[in-house]
Structure formats: structure tokens, C-alpha cells
């Protein structure tokens, strides 16, 4: 038992009976993010699965005030909240934008880059389910190489995933962190920490999606864990430019043992058409990223 489990708030701020699918990785992650954020926070969210999770009019399943915004505008919406709150003297409120990978890597990147460059005082959290899930699993620039989606239905995605974290790093932010629903306490801690920091904070959550990735809902935590064991997804923080591994990835870095990526790929139908070349290419990419991270960690 993780002994620090008891420090997490027992109250739920994402209420049961919401519209997320069975076993949704976003929903598990959001449960902890909302626990960490609930006090004095205003959320803003674009069109996505999260819009649906928040619920249809006139009821919402989330106990934090929220302003829905258009797909491309998330970070600007946050910037407007920050400006509006500052202008009206409500400066003790944290503004948090929560968007999918489409709303972050793709259509939302301009507003996000703008807000980050201006040093807007807010948290931008991207839950990365590696595709446009709300519209039925189309490819995004966060979709990994070799994945089947409804817009890469035969040839699979032929490009590697975009390195959004590196793009955000180039904005010289005070805080960048990656999190996973397989490590809810770590996720919670990172949101608590982000809430205390001033400036633009960027968090990225890997959010396994049973219908979109093609695995049974019961395996969400297993898949998220395998992503970390294989190094496909790495848990770390970058604080004022200083990189360090965290949580399970830290242990893996110390022991130097990662599982091969196939262990992760073979569990998901979306990778069933991946060629040997693609698997090799993905393994190489993961290896080189890992080395890059290790170098950064050494300083």
C-alpha cells in the first residue's frame, strides 16, 4: 500500500454518474487533478471528451467553476480569465486550462504558445489520449507511429508523435511535469505543486482510452503502467529548466531496466497493423529520448 494514499482528499470533486466511458484514463486522472485543484480555481476547457465528462446542460458533474471555450482558444481563454480576475481584484484564484491533445498539440498550440510566451499565470494541463477521441478516434499529431485511427485506417500513422514537452520546454517555463493515472498520488502531488507556483505551468497526462486504443476497460491502469515500464511515457519534472525523473521513472532510471516497447504495443488493437520496421523505429525513438532525458538528469 502506498502509505501516502491517506493524504489525498477523500472528497470527490468529479462526481459519479458522469458521461466518461467505462475505464476512461482521463476520468481517473481528472479525479485526482480536481482533488488537488478544487480550492479557489476556475477551469476552462475546449471541445473534447472532457466537455462531455463535465456534462450536458443543465447539470454538471464537476464541482469546480468552469468556462467552456472553443476548440482553438483554451490558453487564450485562460489568459482572459487571468486578466479579468486581476482587473477585478480577484487575484487569489488559480486559472487552470484542461485540454486534450488535439486542443494542445494541434489546434490549440498557437494560443498556448502565446500565453506561455507572455508568462500568463496559469496551469495548462494536457490530457493526452493520443487522438481526437470526442469525434471518434481520428489521428492527431500526438498519435504515435504505427497507430490505426479512423483517419489512418489502413496504412497506420506514418509519423512519430510530436514532442510537445520539448516545445513547452523551449518556452522556459517555471514548471513542466508529466503524470500518469497509473500513479495517482504522483499526479495529485504534481498538481498541488503546480498550483503553488507562479507563471505558466504545463502538465501533461498520459490518458489511456479503452475504445480509442482498443483494449478492455479493466486494463487502463495496466496500460498506463506499461507505458512507463517501457519508457514510451516518462515521468519527470522540469523546474526552472532543471530536469529530474520522478516516481516510477526515477526507479527505472536508477536500475536501468526498461521493458521492450512491444510489451506495450501488443496489448492494444490500434497497433495490430504495425510493421516490424515501425516497431524498430519506435523502439529507437524511445531509446534515444530516454538517453536524452538521462543526460538532462545528469545536468
Amino acid at each position: 500500500m502506498p502509505e501516502n494514499l491517506f493524504k489525498v482528499k477523500k472528497e470527490e470533486y468529479m462526481l459519479p454518474g458522469n458521461r466518461a466511458c467505462q475505464g476512461c484514463g482521463l476520468s481517473l486522472a481528472y479525479r485526482y487533478a480536481t482533488k488537488a485543484l478544487h480550492q479557489k480555481t476556475i477551469l476552462t476547457i475546449p471541445a473534447s471528451c472532457l466537455t462531455v465528462l463535465h456534462g450536458l446542460y443543465p447539470t454538471t458533474s464537476v464541482m469546480i467553476p468552469c468556462l467552456n471555450c472553443t476548440f482553438a482558444s483554451t490558453a487564450a481563454s485562460a489568459a482572459g480569465l487571468v486578466a479579468g480576475l486581476a482587473a477585478t481584484g480577484q487575484t487569489d484564484t488559480t486559472v487552470v486550462a484542461f485540454a486534450g491533445d488535439g486542443g494542445t498539440y494541434d489546434i490549440g498550440i498557437q494560443a498556448l504558445s502565446g500565453a506561455a510566451e507572455r508568462g500568463t499565470d496559469f496551469i495548462f494541463a494536457c490530457y493526452d489520449n493520443e487522438g481526437y477521441m470526442n469525434t471518434g478516434t481520428q489521428r492527431s499529431s500526438a498519435t504515435p507511429l504505427g497507430a490505426l485511427t479512423t483517419t489512418t485506417p489502413i496504412l497506420t500513422k506514418v509519423q512519430h508523435k510530436k514532442d510537445m514537452l520539448k516545445i513547452m520546454e523551449a518556452h522556459h517555463l517555471p514548471y513542466i511535469a508529466t503524470t500518469s493515472p497509473a500513479y495517482p498520488i504522483d499526479l495529485y502531488d504534481k498538481f498541488v505543486k503546480a498550483k503553488r507556483i507562479v507563471g505558466t505551468r504545463y502538465l501533461q497526462i498520459q490518458a489511456p482510452c479503452p475504445p480509442g486504443w482498443g483494449y478492455p476497460p479493466r486494463d487502463t491502469v495496466k496500460i498506463a503502467r506499461l507505458a512507463i515500464e517501457t519508457g514510451i511515457f516518462v515521468l519527470f519534472e522540469i523546474e526552472d529548466g532543471k530536469f529530474h525523473f520522478t516516481s516510477r521513472s526515477k526507479t527505472i532510471a536508477q536500475r536501468g531496466r526498461r521493458l521492450p516497447v512491444v510489451n506495450y504495443l501488443e496489448k492494444q488493437e490500434r497497433f495490430q497493423k504495425m510493421s516490424m520496421d515501425q516497431i524498430e523505429s519506435l523502439q529507437k525513438m524511445v531509446d534515444s529520448k530516454w538517453q536524452e532525458y538521462q543526460k538532462k538528469a545528469e545536468g
Binding site: I42, T44, L67, C69, T70, A72, S73, A75, A76, S77, A78, A79, G80, L81, A83, G84, L85, A87, T88, Q90, Q110, A111, S113, G114, E117
Partner: peptide
Amino acid sequence: VESEHSAMTVCISASTV
């Protein structure tokens, strides 16, 4: 802002609060 889309967005959120 970095675009007019964002300009109007900022006005929307600010006006909301």
C-alpha cells in the same frame, strides 16, 4: 495576444468574470 481569435477570447473570459 498572438491573434484576433485570442483577442476576442480574452475579452470573452474577462467579461465573464
